[in-house]
Each structure stands twice: as C-alpha cells, then as structure tokens.
Amino acid sequence: MTEPSAVAISMQHVYKSFGPKEVLHDLSIDIERNESVVIVGGSGTGKSVTLKHIIGLLKPDRGEVYVDGKEISDMPPRELNRFRTRFGMSFQEGALFDSMSVFENIAFPLRRHTEMTEDEIRSRVAECLEQVHLSGIEEKRPSELSGGMRRRVGFARAISLKPEILLFDEPTTGLDPVFSDVVADLIVEMDQTLKTTTVTITHDMKVAFKIADRVAMLYGGAIVEQGSPADFQQSKNPIVQQFIEGRAKGPLTD
C-alpha cells in the first residue's frame, strides 16, 4: 500500500481455488476512497468471487485483503462480523429475506446494529426507499415485487446503515436495457449522494462506462487492464477490445 489513507480496499496477490479449479490467480487491485470501480469480465471468471473476498464472505487461499488498512482476510469471525457494518452489499437477485416484508428487510440491520427507536427506524426505512425511488411499498412481500424492484429494495437495505463501502454484484443482470440504465443512474446517484467507495461487478459494458471512475478487466484470475472509462475504451489490449465489442472470435475465446 502506497498511501494507506487514500486506499480503502487493497487486494494483494490473492489466489483462490475451488477444488481443482483455480479461480483467482495472483489478483491485485487497490481501490481508493470515494472511488467507483467497476470490475468487468466474462461469465465464470471469478468476478463474484472477487467481490466476496472484499467483504470476507470468502477467504483467499494465499494473499491478503485489506479494508481501511485492516487485514480482513485474517480477521477472527466475531471481529469480521462487526467490521461488516461498514459495508453495504447488493446481491444478484436481491437476496431479500422472503419471510419478511420490505419494511422488515430494510429495518433488519437497523434493529440489530443501532439503538434507533421504532419511529426513527420507520423514517430511516422511508428515506432509504426514497433514495431508490420506491416510496410507499413497505408492506409488500418480496414475492410480490418485480425483479428490478427486488434489486432496488436490495440497494435500499444495503445503504440503510450508511455504509462507507458499497458492493454491487451484477446489479443489472436480467433486466431490460432501459431498466438497466435506470439502475445504473441510480448507482451513480447513490455513489455521489452517499459519498461511498463503490465496487461493482458486471459484464454489461454500457453500465460499466456509466458508473465507473475506473474500469478493471478480470481475465484468467487476475486484473489484466485497468483505467478510466475513456482510457479503457482506447486500450490496445486485444482481450479488452474483444470484450468491449462483444466479438465471438479473439483471444478470450481461443
């Protein structure tokens, strides 16, 4: 780490295998405070695995993951549990608790990790729903919502504790192009109004260029290219070019 104060998340030489399959191979990336980084890559290249390392849901076989200078890849479970209140994470399909209403889902972390009164919780939940433009659906069940709405309720739940770091796992997968754009706008808006460090993984380049301060390409278990959206688009790297253009032929598929 060069400047510990500026770097929020640092992954150093991370290796991770599942059985015989090596998913991450010497992956290193530094993410600065308040930066919005998008990690792109093909399906099954370990994007989700990378994201889960940042919040400690997975532990590296080798290498270290630092968040705010603390090594979370080597943290005892209870300390890690407490540390996670600094994160907000949104999952692919929302991962809402289907035994609870929308209100209870968003109130869940507030009830557990704050001393807020019931009135304060109620207004905080309304505030979070307003942030994702879904006011007034508190009493609905997750099963009554559309895929896009579930995703956005997931965002609301992720931001309820005012986290410093937001993680988005494939926020637009399975949504139509228009709605993908709406969600991308929303992520930009949340990133700016909440002043968070944001890490998003996606394979949708349009979304990536929209929300990223910096785009990084994951290939072969490591970051092969990174830069500002403009630089990234100009990259001479044939892997990157093939991925951006979505061609079937090229180094990615050889």
Partner: peptide, 12 residues
C-alpha cells in the same frame, strides 16, 4: 438464493 450471504453481509 444467497440469503445466507446477505445475512453475513448485514453483519449477522
């Protein structure tokens, strides 16, 4: 459905 991961991510 990743709800277990979501629980952990919510520090539970």
């Amino acid at each position: 459905t990743e709800q277990i991961d979501a629980l952990k991510a919510l520090a539970t």
